[in-house]
Design a protein around this nucleic acid. Structure first.
Length: 579
DNA sequence: CGATATTTGT
């Protein structure tokens, strides 16, 4: 028998970033027991470290080949655990930040955190304390469902921990991410404790939700009213990115000045945010000047620069930046591809995808959305179908956005049946999905089906609160206009529209738009038809001469017309009689 | 002791 490793060696094994495999962990556990190192309390706290390692090793995806024991079995071996051991285990789990270990959306890890918390509540010996909740709430904020976090918030109140600033901030963060923003705000306004992180959390929350006005107002209030805090890097990241959402260049320069005159640490992250803001506010020049002043550029810095050039249509410069970057993850690839698509250089986008595959970069959902958009523009049905198969083969999750892109691609590439099929298959639909389907049907001249879908969309209440605070109405309008185009005489559309506006509390505007729609209905829209040849869609409008082979096509049409006339003469029937 | 933060998309 080899001698047991010294405690320092065991400690090192337990503290490694990657936990030892379960089998090894059990050995370590036995050694610690034999050495009497698990008697509580001890320093260093071996039982906390062992609990953390168990929590992590039952999460480790690499051990998923063999059945993993439930976490509570492993922890039962350590029973009874102290609160700090539970906290350490929850902490270790909540810090393990990627989703490889569990199901999507960090679900696996969060549920393990919650089961640890339940074990803690059941244990009787230990009670959750002020250190338990920041980690736990952070985990809950990563979960789509709100229920668990709400329950935990209830416990916080029950235990009277609502005066611990760390707990309050974690609760605010949870509410800002998952709950109604008003609740986060209420907590901020009513809490007896408040510090820099409280302000930052709330400002960041408003920015994440796309309410930049509120974020900036809070920022100025913080500067003016609360002398106990000074804006730091995190504050400024929130304020500057909010300013980017506002597209307010003047404000952006002011905030930039604020950073420099208030000694805020100008870290790469802040400078990246500043670049992004300048790009969004339309000043490529200032974005470049910030980029050039960054000493240690990250992938984010380079990517933001690519987005900037692409946004201004300077694809050659975007490509140059892309080629110059020392290392790339999927972001710069997607950013460049998006640029090509938006600049209508769809063939370049497809070529980039092939480069991406040669570079062995794993494409993601966004890559696929870009590819499908490129295919839609090109009318490249073959390629589009290949992308569809690729998505299925690689088991990429078909999100709303991806599903919508598929529908749009099939519709624009001329395969409306497949578009309908995908529409029926996908589980999640939003207003954009419906619009893509309705416009697709309308473009294929399927007026009845389009109107039926429009009706269904309204019936399902698939709008007012989907997007903002108005944007949705224009979506409805977009769909409706398409319908008016194909059948101006259908009064049903006007009724539906009127109802839609009524539902959205826009009665005042309803009449005005009604008149507009009528006007549109009167207007003649040129008839249009599409034909697909070898994966390329050719579009023709009445009297359209834009096609490269227009002369030949019209010659051919003329020939066909002559032949029909000739046949008519032979059969002695009139053209109107046939048609 | 513990909480807040930047880049890609229909």
């Amino acid at each position: 028998m080899p001698p047991p490793p010294p405690p320092s060696r065991l400690l090192a094994l337990l503290s490694a970033r990657r936990p030892p495999p379960l089998r090894r962990l059990l050995q370590i556990h036995a050694h610690l027991l034999a050495a009497g190192l698990l008697s509580f309390p001890s320093s260093p706290d071996f039982s906390s470290r062992l609990a953390s390692a168990y929590a992590l090793s039952t999460t480790d995806a690499s051990s998923s080949a063999s059945p993993r024991p439930p976490l509570h079995h492993a922890l039962a071996l350590l029973f009874p655990l102290s609160t700090s051991a539970y906290n350490a285990a929850i902490r270790a789990l909540s810090l393990c930040d990627d989703d490889r270990h569990g199901c999507r959306g960090g679900g696996g890890i969060v549920h393990r955190c919650l089961s640890l918390y339940r074990a803690l509540l059941r244990s009787g010996a230990a009670r959750p304390d002020h250190l338990t909740f920041p980690f736990l709430l952070k985990a809950c904020a990563r979960l789509q469902e709100r229920g668990y976090g709400d329950a935990v918030l209830g416990h916080v109140l029950g235990l009277g921990l609502d005066s611990d600033v760390f707990v309050v901030n974690a609760a605010m963060h949870f509410l800002a991410v998952r709950g109604p923003m008003e609740d986060a705000r209420k907590l901020f306004d009513q809490s007896p404790v408040r510090d820099l992180v409280s302000w930052n959390t709330l400002i960041g929350g408003y920015v994440r939700r796309g309410i930049p006005g509120e974020a900036l107002e809070l920022f100025w209030r913080m500067v003016a009213e609360d002398a106990s805090v000074r804006p730091d890097e995190v504050t400024m990241i929130g304020a500057v990115s909010g300013c980017g959402q506002l597209r307010d260049l003047e404000l952006g320069r002011r905030l930039h000045g604020f950073v420099e005159s208030n000694g805020v640490r100008c870290t790469v992250r802040l400078m990246n945010t500043m670049m992004d803001m300048y790009v969004k506010c339309g000043s490529l020049e200032l974005a470049v000047s910030v980029f050039e002043r960054i000493e240690h550029r990250t992938v984010v810095s380079w990517t933001t620069m690519i987005v900037g050039y692409a946004k201004f249509g300077l694809m050659d410069d975007a490509r140059k930046v892309f080629d110059e970057m020392p290392e790339r993850d999927v972001f710069p690839w997607n950013a460049l591809m998006t640029g090509y698509v938006q600049c209508k250089q769809c063939k370049e986008a497809l070529a980039l995808f092939h480069e991406m595959q040669e570079a062995s970069v794993e494409p993601d959902e966004i890559t696929m959305v870009n590819l499908l958009t490129a295919c839609s523009h090109l009318g490249a049905l073959e390629m589009g179908m290949w992308v569809h198969r690729y998505i299925e083969k690689h088991r990429l999750v078909i999100s709303v956005a991806l599903g919508t892109s598929l529908i749009d691609m099939y519709a624009k590439c001329g395969n409306i049946e497949k578009a309908i099929h995908v529409f029926k298959e996908i589980p999640e639909k939003n207003a954009l999905t419906w619009t893509a389907m309705i416009c697709g049907l309308a473009n294929h001249g399927l007026a009845y089906e389009a109107i039926e879908h429009f009706r269904k969309m309204i019936d399902l209440g698939q709008q007012p609160d989907e997007i903002t605070m108005h944007g949705n109405i224009s979506l409805g309008e977009k769909a409706a206009m398409k319908l008016v185009e194909i059948d101006p005489s259908d009064s049903g559309i006007y009724v539906l529209l009127a109802n839609m506006y009524a539902d959205a509390n826009m009665r005042k505007k309803a009449d005005k738009v009604r008149a507009m729609m009528r006007h549109l209905g009167v207007e003649k829209v040129p008839g249009c038809s599409c034909i697909e040849l070898n994966g390329v869609v050719h579009e023709f409008i009445v009297k359209d001469k834009s096609h490269t082979d227009a002369d030949a096509i019209y010659d051919c049409l003329h020939e066909i017309t002559l032949q029909i006339r000739h046949t008519e003469d032979l059969l002695n029937i009139s053209a109107t009689g046939v048609v």
